[in-house]
């Protein structure tokens, strides 16, 4: 049987799906509405991001894995929507973007 990378991408897709399902809604509520509604000050939120190692780790996970979730699902939904003949290129672009995003997140968080 030909060797396939599929199990790796599927695992990352699945892990990203779990992380996104459990954590994105509440995180989005906090980043989207907490400051405008006055639940927390912008500076209070910023200090959490900058000073707390646990928050940094949380942000890394919630950026990286959902990007892989997107990459895997998007490459197949594009085909369902009629994108033809560029499957290989599309896969490289999607997973590549997720990898670049992961590295960028790590660099940004390490610099804070």
């Amino acid at each position: 049987m030909a060797k396939s990378n599929e199990p790796i991408w599927w695992s990352l897709f699945s892990a990203g799906g779990v992380v996104a399902a459990f954590l994105i809604p509440i995180t989005l509520l906090l980043t989207g509405f907490a400051v405008p509604f006055g639940w927390i000050t912008a500076e209070g939120l910023r200090e959490l991001v900058v000073n707390n190692l646990l928050v940094k780790l949380y942000l890394f996970v919630i950026i990286s894995l959902p990007l892989f979730h997107w990459a895997h699902r998007f490459r197949y939904v594009a085909v369902d929507l009629g994108v033809k003949g560029v499957g290989g290129l599309l896969a490289v672009l999607c997973y590549g973007a997720a990898i670049v995003g992961t590295v960028t997140a790590a660099v940004f968080l390490a610099q804070l």
Partner: peptide, 21 residues
């Protein structure tokens, strides 16, 4: 299936957020 665009888009927004932090 298209929810993935918003999931990925939000991850991208968080990337911008930490870049500005």
């Amino acid at each position: 299936e298209l929810t993935c665009v918003f999931v990925g888009g939000y991850a991208l927004y968080l990337l911008v957020l930490i870049a500005q932090a």
